[in-house]
């Protein structure tokens, strides 16, 4: 034991937050777990069913399909938005009077509510009256996101890239502006090419902000609901039905509270695992432990 115990009284300052989190997150989560082991008929009529809902959900092909779609969507979003965001950030001027204007313009898509983004793209991509859908069809490329699953996916991904690449770009820009000018001068003296400067000077210093960007986009895309709901409604068929939409159909549409609660707990576990993996990789990367 150390000779003097550390003074941990500052932790008491966290107590109010702990109470709020307990009230708004922990107790509701406990209730969901309670629901997940029961068949709920009404407030007073419940039947204990053990792990039956979990077993049923884990063997439900619709759940597994939605999970695979969700993982695929998140992977595609990251593969598109992170490189594109870095490219945009590198293309921005680091100083001068236009920087502020460009940053504000970049931030505009982030300020638009999700359902509005869905509506914009629903109209924009329509093959009959939408500018994008009509133009693509006029070019001789058949495009109809309401009927073709591939077209629906492409439209969804374009919409997400349009909405969220700015976030990655702004984060990457903040990382780039923090790199001292001397690093660039040293790279120039060494005769580094643009690619080498990016690889050996910029990328290592961007790692921290990029991990934050990846984590934010991963979590957000993994929980996406409103945009696909407005744009495609999960269709055509179930081709763009992601986990949250299937869960909402189950909980609110069908009022299957027990299975929906088991679904929620499984969804939560996957998110928890992904968060932990990223957190651990960040800690390992920084060598903090």
């Amino acid at each position: 034991m150390p000779e003097t115990m550390p003074d941990n009284r500052a932790w008491l300052g966290v107590l109010p937050v702990l109470l709020v989190v307990a009230f708004s997150a922990v107790i509701p989560l406990m209730t969901v777990v309670n629901y997940s082991v029961q068949d709920i008929f009404d407030v007073h009529t419940r039947l204990f069913v053990g792990f039956d809902w979990y077993r049923e959900t884990l063997r439900d092909p619709r759940f597994l399909d939605a999970l695979v779609r969700q993982l695929g969507f998140s992977a595609a979003v990251l593969a598109l938005e992170v490189p594109l965001g870095i490219l945009v950030a590198r293309a921005l001027p680091r100083d001068g009077r236009w920087v502020g204007v460009l940053l504000v313009l970049l931030a505009v898509p982030l300020l638009i509510p999700w359902n509005v983004v869905g509506t914009i793209w629903q109209l924009f991509a329509r093959p009959d009256i939408g500018l994008l859908g009509r133009a693509v069809n006029e070019l001789g490329i058949p495009f109809n996101y309401t009927a073709e699953p591939l077209h629906a996916w492409i439209t969804l991904l374009m919409m997400d890239v349009w909405h969220w690449t700015s976030l990655v770009a702004l984060l990457a820009f903040s990382g780039l502006t923090a790199i001292p000018g001397q690093c660039y001068q040293a790279a120039a003296m060494d005769g580094m090419s643009g690619v080498q400067v990016f690889r050996h000077v910029e990328l290592p210093r961007l790692k921290s902000v990029l991990v934050i960007a990846v984590l934010l986009r991963l979590m957000d895309s993994f929980m996406i609901y409103t945009e696909p709901f407005v744009l495609t409604g999960g269709g055509p068929g179930n081709s763009t039905t992601f986990l949250s939409q299937y869960l909402t159909t189950m909980a609110v549409g069908q009022f299957d509270l027990g299975p929906a609660a088991a679904f929620s707990v499984l969804y939560f576990l996957v998110v928890l695992l992904l968060c932990w993996l990223f957190y651990t990789s960040v800690i390992a990367e920084r060598g903090e432990r």
Partner: peptide
């Protein structure tokens, strides 16, 4: 009671 407690889940959380 609104939390719909059962004995197994109560034991688990305890």
């Amino acid at each position: 009671s609104w939390m719909a407690w059962t004995l197994p889940t109560a034991i688990f959380f305890a």
